[in-house]
């Protein structure tokens, strides 16, 4: 195979595999910008993956499946918001509980659905006109689902919302200094709830994409740690929706290459690549001058109680 077609197909598949990572990361960025870490992404994604598959298989509509995936992700995130914002539980432990619960519940519910191919999947598109551009066309405008493009547009819109609007100022101030935000009349609890639930909606869609588009089938544990990669990507992207695009693309490429390179290396060793690189990338970006860029929202992980400092 000549190398141009190899590069083209790799870029195209990296983009497709980056979709669940991009959606999940965009959601987690919003939750963390408002000051709430949600380690439950893995659980929300797997619940979304199962829900999307089950609904699509029963009703025959991948769109409705993805909608329900978003809903189940949102409900799971609502639980997290209630525990961490209202009950002020430890955010790390609450998120871990959500992941354990989600993995267990999806495994339990999904037992009868295992191994059945999905009858109607999310269609792969060929963008008319643009797909005929040499090189770029097949890279970007063929064999992608609509979620690739919505995800990219969403990243831009969310960046604008976060850095160019009053709402964005409200979200960021809640994550940086909730007491001041409160004094300015911003409803800290409401902002945190909204951001966490929004994150859950996106994580649910990201999981749903896996089961109705990328590998149209249901297998237990099919998210295989992508939810944790999302947490790493959020840090790597410096809580910036636009940078999440590059991160998701890079890790999408790693996931894709772990299948692609099996002729050269044992598949098990290839599969550990994304996790290995997640550590390496975080270590590299935490080294020396890059460190200042990666400052987390100041109130991240800290519950807010009015009148306490």
């Amino acid at each position: 195979m000549d190398w141009t077609s190899w590069v083209i197909s790799t870029v195209s598949r990296a983009l497709a595999f980056g979709v669940p990572l991009l959606w999940g990361t965009l959601g987690e960025i919003y939750a963390e910008r408002a000051g709430v870490v949600n380690l439950g992404v893995e659980g929300m994604m797997i619940l979304g993956a199962f829900m999307a598959f089950a609904v699509t298989q029963s009703v025959g509509s991948p769109g409705l499946g993805l909608f329900c995936a978003a809903m189940v992700g949102g409900v799971a995130a609502l639980v997290h918001a209630f525990l961490t914002v209202t009950l002020r539980a430890n955010q790390y432990v609450a998120g871990l509980a959500l992941s354990m619960f989600g993995l267990g519940l999806a495994g339990l519910l999904g037992r009868g659905w295992e191994g059945k191919p999905l009858s109607s999947t999310l269609p792969y598109l060929t963008v008319p006109g643009l797909s005929r551009i040499p090189v770029l066309g097949p890279m970007l405008f063929q064999d992608q689902t609509v979620l690739t493009y919505i995800g990219l547009v969403l990243a831009v819109l969310l960046w604008i919302l976060l850095f160019r609007t009053r709402w964005g100022v409200a979200i960021r101030s809640v994550g940086e200094n909730p007491a001041t935000a409160d004094a300015l009349g911003i409803n800290v609890t409401l902002v945190r709830y909204l951001c966490v639930v929004f994150g859950g909606l996106l994580a649910g869609v990201g999981g749903g994409y896996l089961s109705v588009a990328y590998r149209p089938a249901w297998t237990e544990g099919m998210t295989a740690g992508m939810g944790w990669i999302v947490i790493a990507l959020t840090i790597f992207a410096a809580w910036d929706p636009l940078q999440a695009i590059w991160g998701a693309f890079f890790f999408g490429a790693l996931y894709h290459l772990s299948y692609r390179l099996q002729a050269f290396l044992a598949p098990e060793l290839l599969k550990l690549m994304p996790y290995f690189f997640a550590v390496v990338v975080l270590a590299a970006s935490g080294f020396g001058r890059a460190r200042w860029r990666r400052r987390a929202p100041a109130a991240l992980g800290v519950p807010y109680v009015r009148g306490e400092r």
Binding site: Y92, A266, L269, F276, L282
Partner: peptide
């Protein structure tokens, strides 16, 4: 390197899982 401990410990879980898979298959 200021790497978040939750992430690094979790990632090392996956890395070790695949190392064991590799050992027993290879």
């Amino acid at each position: 390197f200021a790497v978040n401990d939750v992430i690094s410990t979790l990632m090392l879980n996956y890395i070790m899982i695949y190392i064991v898979e590799w050992l027993v298959h290879g």
